[in-house]
Write a protein that binds this DNA or RNA. Structure first.
Lengths: 216, 216
DNA sequence: GCATGTGAAAAGGTTCACAGCC
DNA sequence: GGCTGTGAACCTTTTCACATGC
């Protein structure tokens, strides 16, 4: 049987790696592999085997000593730990370049994510059909969120309206936001924001390139 | 004059926040603000003022006690620290949904980034014009990288070819990769990979949603 | 025998609180 | 007086190394 530490909080750094483990496990399963080890799984996930074992220890005890892990069942445990056995309905706000790409992104792979609505503010975009959805006006945000039971919002708007949209999203009761706008959103403590900043990532790479050049 | 700690390494966590500071400084400059404080800048960047001051201390000493920071000059110092005063030429590999969006992304904001080439493997895409570039075949990767003096590659290919493309990118001498494919790329130690994983970010949000639900 | 699971040690990062300086 | 810059304290995260149990 599997133990499940009831209240011990899972460290944030561990949570951030669980998707990697899950992905690696699904790859293994797709290849027909049924059993794996912490070292194999760690290598495929890009972490050390000690790190992987420590991370899993926060969730419970899923392996067999001397043997390893059952691929399918470990994948199931992580799926449950991530809350992916329940459906999460998304709304994407801001149907520009990026919003388009996100709407068409087939890989809401981890089952459990469903795009429920697309919204934008531009009259030229509202009413058009994108990825099987009619784009609605962002002024109807609260109504759409309620109507479609949206629990997560993806923000792909220009930076100068992102905070305003975020305020409305939070006001409509959404507590999880994935932000692509390059600014730090101000939200209440109980709202979780994850930010993806392509420009920032490039700048970090530039730092390393400069450091390399300086070291010559 | 400004001191610049010569060899003391800048912590990775600090480097990852520098883009936020730079963005906030540019916002302030755009608003006509010429002087700011660690608390104002920190709030706009989403960090604590102590953290901001500590981060800056790794780069040098740029403020005036009792006064604050000059917006323009601090922005300049961070720009230099990030290596953004030199031009970085990018190639985007994989011109699907996401690659399209990235190619059209106007905000290679931080001057210094320039899209030099687009590549794909599909005969239907190669030869078409996207964002002002004719898409070239990924088999010509090494030649394109050399011809266009590409120093960073953005990988937006399907996951199952990402490692193969990454190997060729590294073989062609590129040492900085921004990876959008959902897998852990295996690269030599001297290559820097930053990964952006939209599905993973959603899964992390799902974890928090589940934790919230469990706490009720 | 062998790979997991885990305390303990080490490293890394953040916060505190105040000295230093304008 | 007020804000920066920074050592010291604190907390989190990673790594180590080995006891545990199949």
């Amino acid at each position: 049987m599997v133990s499940e530490p009831s209240d011990a909080a899972v460290p944030g750094a561990t949570v951030a790696r669980l998707p990697y483990y899950l992905r690696a496990l699904r790859d293994l399963a797709a290849q027909g592999v049924t059993t794996t080890s912490s070292s194999e799984l760690a290598e495929r996930s890009g972490v050390s085997s000690a790190q992987l074992r420590k991370d899993l220890s926060y969730l419970g005890s899923f392996g067999t000593r001397g043997v390893g892990y059952d691929v399918e069942s470990l994948a199931s445990y992580i799926t449950v730990a991530l809350g992916l056995e329940t459906e999460h309905r998304l709304a994407i706000v801001g149907i520009g370049n990026l919003g388009h790409a996100l709407a068409n992104y087939s890989g809401y792979e981890a089952r459990g994510f469903q795009v429920a609505a697309l919204l934008d503010a531009s009259p030229e975009v509202v009413g058009t059909r994108v990825a099987g959805h009619v784009v609605e006006h962002v002024d109807d945000l609260a109504a759409v969120i309620s109507r479609d039971d949206v629990s997560m919002v993806v923000l792909a708007t220009p930076a100068h309206v992102a905070q305003d949209v975020a305020d409305r999203v939070v006001g409509a009761g959404v507590r999880e936001i994935l932000n692509f706008a390059p600014l730090a959103l101000q939200v209440p403590d109980d709202v979780v924001v994850r930010s993806v900043d392509v420009g920032g990532e490039l700048q970090i790479l530039a730092f390393h390139a400069a450091a390399r050049a300086a070291a010559l």
